[in-house]
Amino acid sequence: MAPASTPTRRRRAEGSGQDDRLNWAHFREAALGGKDARAVERELVAKLEKEFPEQRRMFRRIEAGQAQAVARLARDARLRQWIHCGPGYPMTAAAEDTHELVLPRHPRRKVLYVTDDQVIAAHSRALRKVGEPDQIRVISADLGQPEEIRRHPEIDGWLDWSQPIVLLHGDAWIHYAGTGEQAAGIMQRWVDQLVNGSYTVSTHLLRPDDETASRRAAVLTERLEGTPVDTLQFRTREEIAALFPKQEMPAGLSHDLDTRLRRGPSVQSMLDAWVVDGVGHVTESVAPEPASHWIGTDEASRITGYTKRQLASLARKGLVPSSRDPRGRYEFDPDELLELVASWKQLAAQNLKPPAPLPQPAPAPTVDRA
């Protein structure tokens, strides 16, 4: 991600089509053992592993931490729009892609991938495919220009900026080449595009206090000096907090990683201390408050034919998108709910088993013939 109008070593010449220079996305792909890594990245990773064998686990921890944050937010059916900035190559070894985590059973959700790397954009368009039409789009754009991304012709009218959006930056700030003030300024401009109820998610390297960990961090940054990926950033808690403007962070910066999301060898405790995940809830946006069109179980029962008890059961099992109001009662998106039920009826009409029993028609009223 480049500061506004400021080129970095990650940028290729305009119109070159190919980029045979090393950049962070390619380096990350090699460190994760991805199939799209090239010889130049594999050589640098192999060289670094001699002195810093933790690097592969560090990248796995970064991706798995982001996957955990995304999976938790995906439980909220109100969050129907997701923007992933700087996603890297699709389907790396450490975790699922964002759309794999958020789209199942949500036919109206959308995921936008934004990258400034033309090669990754091409890979993404080819490989990030799902059965549902037009739920995923990929655009090439400067990640530091949120206003231009919002006006991008390929997403004009596709995203609804008056509704909440989950904004993912992944590890983008870990390798950002600009200053902390520039990074905070970009995030301020991004948050100004979002309405209250939106979220931002990003992973960071926390500057270690422990002497041993500090020495190991110094080894890594020193070995990267002079290479095209020498922009590794360790930040203080205050510097990381500045990347979450106008937001509340109830969980703070999280070191914890669900053991079910750990892949491969366990991450060493030192890396757990380095890598932190942040999830911010936008609460002070200047944008107008989003309008709600969600309905309760009474109305949902009327339009679908399910009883309120059946709807609650489907919601608990995750078979229908739902949310909870402040009193804990289920709420549903009527359009998405009707679309799901219609798709289940189509399966049944083709003698295929739908994911859930279909609503039964109400019994005809009895007539007293006496």
Score class of each variant (00 low, 15 high):
Glu211Phe: 13
Thr212Ile: 15
Thr212Ala: 14
Ala213Gly: 05
Ala213Gln: 13
Ser214Val: 01
Ser214Tyr: 06
Arg215His: 13
Arg215Ala: 11
Arg216Trp: 06
Ala217Cys: 02
Ala217Glu: 01
Ala218Gly: 14
Ala218Leu: 12
Thr221Glu: 06
Thr221Arg: 05
Thr221Val: 14
Glu222Tyr: 09
Glu222His: 14
Arg223Cys: 05
Arg223Leu: 14
Leu224Ile: 04
Leu224Val: 01
Glu225Asp: 15
Gly226Asn: 05
Thr227Pro: 07
Pro228Lys: 03
Asp230Lys: 01
Asp230Val: 02
Leu232Thr: 13
Leu232Pro: 09
Leu232Ala: 02
Leu232Ser: 07
Gln233Glu: 10
Gln233Thr: 05
Gln233Ala: 11
Phe234Gly: 05
Thr236Gly: 01
Arg237Gln: 12
Glu239Gly: 08
Glu239Thr: 03
Ile240His: 04
Ile240Met: 05
Ala241Cys: 04
Ala241Lys: 07
Ala242Cys: 05
Leu243Thr: 06
Phe244Ala: 08
Pro245Lys: 01
Glu248Trp: 03
Glu248Leu: 07
Met249Arg: 14
Pro250Gln: 02
Gly252Val: 08
Leu253Pro: 01
Ser254Lys: 07
Ser254Gln: 11
His255Phe: 05
His255Gln: 04
His255Asn: 08
Asp256Leu: 00
Asp256Ser: 07
Asp256Ala: 08
Leu257Asn: 00
Asp258Arg: 00
Arg260Ala: 11
Arg260Asn: 02
Leu261Thr: 06
Arg262Gly: 08
Arg263Val: 15
Arg263Glu: 14
Gly264Gln: 13
Ser266Asp: 15
Ser266Pro: 15
Val267His: 11
Val267Tyr: 08
Val267Gln: 07
Asp272Asn: 13
Ala273His: 09
Ala273Ser: 13
Trp274Gly: 02
Trp274Phe: 14
Val275Leu: 01
Val275Ile: 11
Val276Ala: 01
Val276Gln: 00
Asp277Cys: 14
Asp277Arg: 15
Gly278Arg: 04
Gly278Phe: 08
Val279Tyr: 07
Val279Asn: 06
His281Lys: 08
Val282Gly: 06
Thr283Pro: 00
Glu284Asn: 15
Ser285Gln: 07
Ala287Asp: 10
Ala287Met: 15
